[in-house]
Simulated assay, not measured.
Amino acid sequence: MSSNAVVPPPRARVLVPLAAFLVPAVWFGPHLLAADGSQGGFADQGTLVGAVKEGFVRYWAAGSGDYSAEMGGVVDYWFRFHVAKAVLASVLLVVLVALGVVVWRAFLRSEGVRRGGLAVAGAGVTGLGLLSLVVAAANVQGAVAPFTSVLTMLPTGARGGELAGTLDQVRGELAAHPDSAPPALAAMISDNARYHVTMAVIAGVVAAGLVVASVVLWRRFAGTADRRTRRVLGAFGGLGAVLAVMVLVVGAANVTVAADSARGLTDFFGA
């Protein structure tokens, strides 16, 4: 076999199958892990949305701010779903970071066809790792405030029926009592604020991590003479800086919504 053949580094032979298992697990696993037998039907998206609509109508009709039985079942299921998905995505992220380090180090030592193959593989692993980070962050947010996450599945443009009438009542309360909301609406406003504060905190932590990583990479860039190594370090250092700015923008947007949660709900419901 030619020395230029695209042969994966030895450690990658363990990490690649693990990543290949975790990618579909992140997609299919959470519904399976969240189901407790009685709620296995929620794995069907149509059934889940139907349960959300019914649960919300009952929740609003009760008016106490406590979950109705229907809404409580959906929120509990959605909490377990988010926890499972956050854990799986985080494990996948760790595996992809380790795999990325292996692949890019191999790229720096390779030549010819092998070098090109490793560059493509490294770019793919990097992109998938960033996607895993986004999925993990979004599901931590959903696990902290599952009620608001559930509400995002409501078809707020519904016309006719109980749901449409309930949505009209919510819009009316948001317009009339944004600062002295009744219990059901107050609970929604509070949970919506928690939902966005959570993402703001996550964004701050991620941005700090990206800044630290970028600084470390740029220092190594400055202390390295090899041109190929400098290109890789410079590319990742620059990517880290750009991503840190983007994440901070996301965090700032979530702080703005959390500061006026009632307004955020007004925009969501189209009041």
Rank of each mutant, 00 (worst) to 15 (best):
S261R: 01
T47E: 14
W78S: 15
T198P: 03
L239C: 13
G209Q: 08
V83Q: 11
V101S: 05
N139R: 04
V74T: 12
V197H: 14
A203G: 11
W78E: 14
S180D: 15
A259P: 03
L210F: 10
D267S: 12
V6G: 01
K85F: 06
A158K: 07
S190P: 05
R80P: 11
V7R: 10
G142K: 11
V83M: 02
V14R: 15
E162L: 12
P8C: 01
N192M: 08
A176W: 06
F269D: 13
L130V: 14
G127F: 13
A106S: 09
A181N: 10
S214P: 07
A181R: 10
L217Q: 12
A259Q: 14
D36N: 14
L130E: 13
V135C: 00
V101C: 06
F79R: 15
A123R: 10
E54S: 13
V216R: 11
V249T: 04
G172R: 14
R105V: 08
G63R: 07
V49K: 07
A235I: 07
Y77Q: 03
L217I: 08
V83R: 06
L22T: 15
A69M: 00
G55N: 04
P155S: 02
W218T: 00
G127K: 11
W218I: 02
D76T: 12
Q141N: 08
G72H: 13
A164C: 09
D191Q: 07
S38N: 10
E54C: 00
L93M: 11
V170P: 09
S132M: 01
P146E: 01
W218G: 06
D44W: 06
T148L: 02
E173V: 14
L18K: 01
R228V: 02
F236P: 05
L92K: 02
A136Q: 05
A62Q: 15
A143I: 08
V57P: 03
A34R: 05
A25T: 12
L96V: 12
A51N: 06
G37H: 01
S214I: 02
A175S: 09
F268K: 12
A89H: 05
D36P: 00
V49N: 03
S190E: 15
F107M: 11
